[in-house]
Each structure stands twice: as structure tokens, then as C-alpha cells.
């Protein structure tokens, strides 16, 4: 059965690597639902967070192929339950709508959102949360006419106490020494 999985990839920060990673999905006709790349806690190591909907068997195989990419240090996959994750959404609404009633103010309060900028014409609201939550907020705000809307890719961390990469880097060094 297909379900959402979060793939986390730790890699060297090299040009072209994004392409090398995504072609593994393209070739199997797997759609990437969201993708985020940033530097990890370890200097020089990038972290990819990729969300796909697939069967566990296929995810497992793709992750093994990803680990074969020379610059990839380690790849994991998790179900949504196994991770803490967030997305960020920005909404632009007409400022006039805020004058007309308290509804938008109430929505902002209720959703734990915040207002980033107010101009005469528009107001930018920010909310973080899961996709369902940011989507609900969108639907509610859209009664007043959302002028623009953008949602980020997912960021996620495991429920482990430490960044597992450091363990893996150590294991990896031991392996490399053993093979010589």
C-alpha cells in the first residue's frame, strides 16, 4: 500500500548532486511531493528531506540506490509517525479584509499564526504546521480572498536524541579502515 514516507539523505555539498538524487525518483516514475535541502548540523554535510508516496518495498529499494550515489553519506526513510516535521506557509490577504471584521484576527490567533507585514494593500500571514493545518488555514482565509499563497517543503527530524549522522560517520570510518 502506498503511503507517505520521509526520506532523509546526508551528503557532501557538491554541484550536481541534487540532479543525481532526483533522477533516482524520475527513472522509477515516483513523484516527489516535497523537497528541502540545507546544511546539516555538521559543517559541509547537506541534508535532503524528500517526501514521496510509495509502498515501503519501493522506498527501501530507492533508498539503497540513493546510498550508492558516491557523494551520499547515508540515506534513511521514515514514516510520518516516526518523525517530527513541519512546513511553513505564507498567505497574502487584502488588508481591507482585516478592517472589515475580526475574523482574520481570530483565525490568526486560533491557528497560532502570525502577521509578518502589513501594507495599505495587503497583509502577509505566516503559519507553520502540517500540510493539513496550513491547508485548513488557507481554506478559511480564502473566504476573504487570498491574493497569494506559498507552502515550503517539509523539514523533519527524528525522535532520536542526537543527530544519527555522527554515529554513522564514525561507523563509516571504522568500515573504511577495516576494508583496507
Amino acid at each position: 500500500m502506498k503511503q507517505e514516507f520521509i526520506i532523509t539523505i546526508y551528503s557532501e555539498n557538491h554541484i550536481g548532486l541534487l540532479n543525481r538524487i532526483t533522477i533516482n525518483f524520475t527513472r522509477r516514475k515516483i513523484n516527489i511531493e516535497s523537497l528541502t535541502v540545507s546544511e546539516s548540523a555538521i559543517h559541509g554535510v547537506s541534508k535532503f528531506t524528500i517526501v514521496i508516496k510509495e509502498t515501503e518495498d519501493r522506498v527501501k529499494k530507492v533508498v539503497r540506490q540513493l546510498e550508492k550515489v558516491v557523494e551520499v553519506l547515508k540515506a534513511f526513510y521514515h514514516t510520518n509517525d516516526e518523525m517530527v516535521y513541519q512546513e511553513i506557509a505564507l498567505y497574502k490577504v487584502p488588508t481591507e479584509a482585516l478592517y472589515e471584521s475580526d475574523d482574520i484576527e481570530n483565525l490568526v490567533r486560533k491557528n497560532g499564526a502570525r502577521i509578518l507585514e502589513i501594507t495599505k494593500e495587503f497583509t502577509v500571514i505566516e503559519k507553520t504546521g502540517h500540510k493539513t493545518e496550513t491547508q485548513e488555514m488557507f481554506d478559511a482565509l480564502n473566504q476573504f480572498g487570498v491574493l497569494q499563497f506559498i507552502r515550503s517543503g517539509r523539514v523533519a527530524i527524528t525522535r532520536d536524541p542526537i543527530e544519527r549522522l555522527s554515529e554513522f560517520l564514525k561507523e563509516r570510518d571504522d568500515l573504511l579502515n577495516q576494508v583496507d
Binding site: 557523494e71 551520499v72 553519506l73 563509516r172 568500515l175 573504511l176 576494508v179 583496507d180
Partner: peptide, 12 residues
């Protein structure tokens, strides 16, 4: 070249 940090040629 004899070693690349991100590459394990073979497992023990």
C-alpha cells in the same frame, strides 16, 4: 586516491 569519505567500495 585510496579513500573517499562518502564511499564504501565493499563491506567487510
Amino acid at each position: 586516491c585510496t579513500k573517499i569519505r562518502s564511499y564504501i567500495p565493499e563491506q567487510p
